[in-house]
Computed example of a mutant assay.
Amino acid sequence: MTTTRVGPLLRAWRERRGLSQLELAGRADSSSRHISFIETGRSRPSEEMILRLADHLDVPVRERNSLLLAAGYAPHYAHTALDDPSMETLREGIRQLLTGYEPYPALVVDATYTVVAANAGITMLLDGLPEHLLTPPLNAMRLTLHPEGLAPRIRNLAQWRGHLLHQMERQIALARSEPLRALYEEVAAYPVPERAAADGQQPDDSAAAVARIALPLVIEHDGHVLSFVSSIATFNTPMDVTVAELAIETLLPADPATVKYLRTLGS
């Protein structure tokens, strides 16, 4: 009998996606019998079959390499450091994108929310934070939820904190990431500033309209109340683990007052 370690891993991903063996077989142009043999280790899948199943199971690129290694194959996807010379075109593209978005805030984070690039709009929001939070590597979740970070400035912290923690919970459920789980446990344990715990820091009426279509981030800056809607983009069809795990977050002004204030700063 042929046995491989990849079978149980594929079964775990299938169950995580809520698919039966028959459903997965239909999507991957295979048979439920063959899927069963792969999962029980009675059959060693080809490299092409592993990648096909991983594609239909929406397995993250990093974990696709793990599946291949478990079956005795070489990794299919490169894992190139972002500061590698071969990544210069990508880095320049990111710089141009972030600069072009100014004066509105925008940043790029990796799979554990480490900030790899940010523009002047983000720097403006972080103005006045303690040095220990601004010492590289910066982490977007720590900066936002730490009681000495942006948390006391966020007018709707209860809602925004719940949104961020739920976002992390979904990511943990979709990908096996111990560093991400450790980060989640850290930031979820942060004490909530007294003001937020007492009154929930509800957003002003100016955010009510946009709140009907998306949860706004309502934050104070230098005596002004700013309102943003967050948008997150990823790279399409990445062939490198590093690129696959990058996310570009942009903060769209949610009201005319925020637009006017940011443009005034930008000028």
Rank of each mutant, 00 (worst) to 15 (best):
G7R: 02
R14N: 09
A70E: 03
G200Y: 12
V210G: 09
G93C: 07
M239S: 12
E148P: 04
P179G: 09
F235H: 09
R64S: 07
D255K: 09
T2G: 04
Y101K: 01
I213C: 05
E102N: 06
S36D: 11
S267Y: 09
N236R: 11
Y101S: 02
G266P: 08
A173P: 09
V116F: 02
S31E: 04
R176E: 15
D58H: 12
D29C: 01
M168P: 05
E88V: 15
T264F: 08
V6G: 02
M124R: 15
L9K: 13
P238L: 06
E39P: 08
G18F: 00
Q167K: 13
A211D: 07
A244Q: 06
T99H: 10
W160Y: 15
I232T: 15
H166Y: 12
D204C: 04
G128L: 01
A247P: 02
D199C: 03
E186P: 12
M141V: 14
D199K: 05
G72D: 02
D58R: 10
R33M: 07
L165E: 14
L138N: 12
L133R: 11
R42F: 09
G41C: 10
I248Q: 09
R14M: 05
D127W: 06
M141C: 14
R195S: 15
E131T: 14
R212Y: 03
A140T: 06
I94G: 00
T237K: 11
E249Q: 13
A197E: 15
V225N: 11
T234P: 00
H163R: 15
P60R: 00
A247F: 04
V229M: 12
R14V: 01
